[in-house]
Amino acid sequence: MSDRPNESFLARLDRIDRRWIFLMMAIAVAGPIIWVGVTGRTFPETATPAVQGAFDAIERLPEGSKVLISFDFDPASAGELQPMATGFIHHCQLRKHRIYAMTLWAPGSPLIGATLADVIGSDPSYRYGENFVDLGYQAGNEGVMKQVGVDFPKAFPNDSKGTPLARIPMMQGITRLSDFDILISVSAGYPGGKEWVQYGVSPTLTQGHRLPFVAGSTGVQTPQMIPYYPVQMSGILGAIKGAAEYESLVNAKATAPGETVPAKYQEAQRRMAPQLFGHSLMVGLILVGNVIFFAGRRKGAAE
């Protein structure tokens, strides 16, 4: 097959077509998905301090607290962030908090409705307008953040259905961001968690009444958010691993030992199996790449 028959194995490996690597990655991810789909097995998760911090921040609020959650992501990042959004709403529901959902990403708007319907749609104790509300999308990015910090009804004059805020019972008494008990941002980038810290949380920090803030963020964004923890941010779910840890914390609270956890609350945990094989493949590829590199360098030096 090879057009260079005297070539060493490592040299041929070095020239391997990248499509073989693509194929390996596809198998490394697809195989575990099928395995988990068929067996339903997931790996155990232990929460890291940042995830525990996020959980505790929501957990310690008294029942009925006002939680503003911003769905700052689109379907492109839903693979990572949807389990976090589902987990946050599920946790708030367990704690009987009032949920105010909004988004600064236009394609995030349908995700709010779908998540609320999925998690609390069948709960008779949660009534729209009294226990949860979908405020939808507003254009303006940081402009909206700045405005909700000063005049919330001006930024969101109505909910996603067009109902004026004055006619929504749970909006009574909400005039600015600091009227909420906690802010959660599930974000895929700009505008998102970082901007919420800058425009939403930091002003309350200097005003002496820090608004508790929790973030769920993509793998790309998480390292940039770490310096905000724990002063400006109570906790963070970093990438799918953070989501899986948070899921396990919420599920441990929601279900009795031995009870089956609904599949919709295990999305991130299911995804940790393809992660394991994908990461292992990456490590293997880097190792093999370096073996080839050093072997080639040694050969070059010998010649």
Partner: peptide, 20 residues
């Protein structure tokens, strides 16, 4: 490391859609 983690999660979500 975190970027790789994110991208694999997105790929897993797409493959899940196809298989499920």
């Amino acid at each position: 490391g975190f970027t790789v983690m994110g991208r694999i999660a997105l790929l897993a979500a797409r493959l899940e859609f196809l298989f499920d």
